[in-house]
Design a protein around this nucleic acid. Structure first.
Lengths: 134, 134
DNA sequence: GCAATTGATGTAATAACATTACATTTCAAG
DNA sequence: CTTGAAATGTAATGTTATTACATCAATTGC
């Protein structure tokens, strides 16, 4: 998967997420970009849609929030080309750890195959306390 | 885990979910219960909170919707006492399949232990197409 | 060059999901 | 009987996401 050139708004949103320690809601991103001319939620959601398509950003379903993909170019599965992403989310400090587990992926795929279910998108999120907060 | 007697509102909400083919949003439940005297979202959310506590209902994070637990009394892990629940959700017909995979659970627990991350709640959802819709 | 198409943007309004705050009722334990 | 805990009723508000429509910018094909 390639990472095409980003538009101005996409770059702004991506930068905000990249600099953030934790996941951000669309409206939090909006507030951070008011000084850059952002005025409406849709400006954020549109940029996020593209970034999600490109695999550069992930949505945390249990938080209704977004994080920049933690993968480096050199990662095991290629640049943003990986399959399932999983997250551990600290409910205390908000820190998010992105990880991948091929065994889990494989297991879920097996289950789906057995059911003749055709997976499109998987969500794996663990809420809890990180090492620092435990 | 025991299933304590439900209050009137809890029973109404649980019955609506049990009779439904697919997951329902809180507001959809509210509409279905207008004739039973429901007038405000909070009446639904309060009932759902208790039902979630009792493990009789699950929340689908990727859908912001709720389903009755598909587990029977006789299921492998005891009545509503199971650990992680996983779901396959058909994006076409809305059908939800609840399942459990101890291998996946174990694998995620292992990962968490390795990170000294203390899990509280896990979310596993597969969106896609069911056998009938594929 | 220039129309036509496509994708990105700006803005307002609204829809959908969820919680806070506060008053009242129910009901069982003491 | 009363009193304390849990459930309920209601209104208001907060948060997340989308629809609709107008405009602008870059590219393509003629």
């Amino acid at each position: 998967m390639t990472s095409p050139a980003l538009t101005k708004n996409q770059t702004l949103v991506f930068d905000v997420l990249t600099k953030s320690e934790s996941a951000l809601s669309a409206y939090t991103i909006l507030d951070k970009l008011r000084d850059n001319g952002f005025r409406a939620p849709l400006q954020v959601y549109r940029a996020l849609d593209k970034l999600l398509e490109h695999g550069m950003v992930h949505r945390l379903e249990s938080l209704n929030a977004f994080v920049a993909c933690a993968h480096q170019q050199s990662a095991c599965c290629g640049s943003h080309g990986h399959g399932t992403v999983a997250f551990a989310i600290c409910d205390s400090c908000g820190h998010v750890i992105e990880f991948h587990d091929h065994e889990v992926d494989h297991r879920l795929d097996d289950w789906a195959r057995g059911q003749r279910f055709k997976p499109e998108k998987r969500t794996i999120e663990i809420r809890g306390l990180c090492e620092s907060c435990a």
